[in-house]
Structures are given as structure tokens and as C-alpha cells.
């Protein structure tokens, strides 16, 4: 819109291309791959929460649906991961479509409650159906092979996810600059005003919700294949909170913010892991302080401080 987006994309690509020089071992690669997965996930969620202004505290439910769809279909029905992934996305999209209309009639805390409830129900189903899902102890997942190329090992995954991140960022930017995206942003400003100028509010909310649900499902599938092990926690309430926190900490309606938010909150538990029991306290305190001092999120706040517009 205002500025060309290519310098940003180029810088990100360059950064991702050079990053391996600073990664000493498979563990650091692992952390970065998890960051990349989360970054795409959070970008998707940001379309809903940041751009369209609709809170979701149940997003991990969709991630869990995708993750367990591929896991169950590849393990129990011998499906190839790709159609399994598509099935998961279709399932998540369908569920989102079914509940979107009644859910988005709700406002504020009622919307919060409904999305939270939806996510928790999905998590409970996953935890209970242990014949299929292995229950709370989790289940192993096979690795992913794409047309004869086995995607295994942290380095290959890094390459794959890095390309996927740049592509996702580019797609999201395009989408938000399209007429569709402008209509979606209008929702955040004022729904009534959008309605007055002829935006079909309901339809756009549903569309964004379904889109982010499907994206979440696909990323869930990828997580499952990457980690090779799944637990119901992937669909749980705390994971939902984590994802929303990444959106908010990075910056609402800021796609680069989503990447930063995902990076910080994925690394934080790793950095805090050696605190000998103080992890929880430190994590909580950091959340509180970030929200108090940067209520708009890191990237928008810093951008404003350094005198540049978004």
C-alpha cells in the first residue's frame, strides 16, 4: 500500500538465508524451526485477531485438529501425509464454517468464552479418544515425505519452513492489501460503519475465520510431522493463550510483529528453562510487563518510537 513490501521480504529472506551460520547444532535449528512454524500460525491468527478484531481463545483447537488428523490418518489408516493434511484442513475449515455464524454474532467476552469453549471441547475429545490418539500420553507420528523427498532432520525442515514463511508473509500481505483485506480491516474500525458502506460484515468474518482455521490446521499437521510426537496439549487452552500472546506481544495487525512475537515467545521458555523453578514466575512477569509497557505490541511500539510509520 503505502510502501513497497519487497525490501522487507528481501531482508527477511536474506536473514533466513544467513541465519544457519549462527546455528551451532541441531537443537538451535530445532528452536528456529519451531519459531518458523509458530510465526506462520501466528500470522494467520493475526488476520483474525489483529486485522479483523475478533478475539479467539480457542485457536489451538484447530491446530490440534490438523495435527491429529494427519497423525491418526497416517498411523491408523495408512494414508499418505498430504491427503491426510488436506483432510485435516477441510475438517477444520468445515467446523469453523459451521460455528462461525453463531459465534460471530457474539461480542467481547461472550465471543471469548465461545472460542475458548470450542477449543477446550476439541482438546477434551483428543484426550479422551485414546484408542485413536494415544490419550494424554500422546502418540508418535511418521515423518513427512513429499514426492519422493524425505523431509526429516532439522536442517531440511529449516529450509522448507524458511521458504514457507517468506511465501506466507508475501501471501498475507497481498491478501490484506486486496479489496478483501481492506474490507476485513474495516471490521476492526467499526462494524456498523462498514455495514453502512456496504461491507457484508458477517460474510467477511466467516471467511477470515475459516481461512485462519484451515491455516492453523495445516501448521498443526506440519508440527506433528516435524516433532514426530503429539500430545493433546497442542490443542489445549494454554497453547491457545500462547498463540494469542504471540500476536499481541508482536503487535496486533503487524505481520512482522507476528514473526517477532513467535520468535520471542518460543525462545523464552527455552531461555528460562534453567531458572530452577522460577520459570513460571518469570514468564508471567514478562507477560505482564510487556503488556503494560508495550500495549500495542513490540513491533508497532518500537516502530513508533523510532519515528517511522508502519
Amino acid at each position: 500500500m503505502r510502501r513497497s513490501r519487497y525490501p522487507g521480504l528481501l531482508a527477511l529472506s536474506l536473514f533466513l538465508a544467513l541465519l544457519p551460520l549462527a546455528l551451532p547444532n541441531a537443537y538451535t535449528y530445532d528452536v528456529v524451526v519451531r519459531i518458523l512454524i509458530n510465526a506462520i500460525l501466528v500470522m494467520g491468527l493475526n488476520l483474525l485477531v489483529g486485522f479483523a478484531g475478533q478475539i479467539s481463545l480457542g485457536h489451538a483447537g484447530f491446530v490440534g485438529m490438523g495435527a491429529y488428523s494427519t497423525a491418526v490418518l497416517t498411523t491408523h489408516a495408512n494414508w499418505h501425509p498430504l491427503p491426510a493434511m488436506a483432510a485435516g484442513a477441510a475438517l477444520a475449515g468445515f467446523l469453523a464454517l459451521m460455528v462461525a455464524r453463531p459465534i460471530f454474532r457474539l461480542k467481547g467476552q461472550y465471543l471469548t468464552m465461545a472460542t475458548l469453549g470450542l477449543g477446550i471441547i476439541i482438546a477434551i475429545v483428543i484426550g479422551n479418544e485414546s484408542a485413536w490418539t494415544g490419550g494424554p500420553d500422546g502418540m508418535p507420528v511418521s515423518s513427512l515425505s513429499l514426492v519422493g523427498f524425505e523431509l526429516s532432520g532439522e536442517k531440511r525442515w529449516y529450509g522448507f519452513m524458511a521458504v514457507l514463511l517468506v511465501f506466507s508473509l508475501w501471501s498475507c500481505q497481498n491478501l490484506m492489501d486486496s479489496p478483501f483485506g481492506r474490507a476485513v480491516r474495516a471490521l476492526h474500525g467499526s462494524e456498523v460503519a462498514s455495514q453502512v458502506v456496504g461491507v457484508n460484515v458477517g460474510r467477511y468474518k466467516v471467511a477470515v475465520f475459516v481461512l485462519t482455521a484451515m491455516l492453523a490446521s495445516v501448521m498443526g499437521s506440519l508440527t506433528a510431522h516435524y516433532v514426530g510426537f503429539l500430545t493433546p496439549g497442542v490443542a489445549g487452552f494454554f497453547h491457545s493463550i500462547e498463540l494469542v500472546t504471540m500476536v499481541v506481544v508482536g503487535g496486533m495487525a503487524s505481520l512482522y510483529g507476528s514473526i517477532v512475537g513467535a520468535a520471542l515467545l518460543t525462545m523464552l521458555p527455552q531461555l528460562l528453562a534453567t531458572l530452577e523453578g522460577w520459570e513460571t514466575v518469570a514468564f508471567g512477569a514478562i507477560l505482564v510487563f510487556t503488556m503494560i509497557f508495550m500495549p500495542r505490541g513490540l513491533v508497532p511500539t518500537l516502530a513508533a518510537r523510532f519515528g517511522r510509520t508502519r
Binding site: 525490501p7 522487507g8 531482508a11 527477511l12 536473514f15 541465519l19 549462527a22 546455528l23 551451532p24 547444532n25 537443537y27 538451535t28 528452536v31 528456529v32 503487524s254 512482522y256 514473526i259 517477532v260 520468535a263 520471542l264 525462545m267 527455552q270 531461555l271 513491533v299 518500537l302 516502530a303 523510532f306 517511522r308 508502519r310
Partner: peptide, 23 residues
């Protein structure tokens, strides 16, 4: 959006991650 800042922040964290390794 200030990309250079973002890069610096990211790079900083990568460094922190790296130092935990192999003593």
C-alpha cells in the same frame, strides 16, 4: 516497520541461544 531493529533483536536472541552449547 523497522526491519533493522527486528533483525538485531532476532540476531541477539540467536546469540544467546548459541552460548548455552558445548563448554
Amino acid at each position: 516497520m523497522n526491519k533493522r531493529m527486528t533483525l538485531k533483536v532476532l540476531a541477539g536472541f540467536v546469540l544467546v541461544l548459541g552460548t548455552g552449547a558445548a563448554l
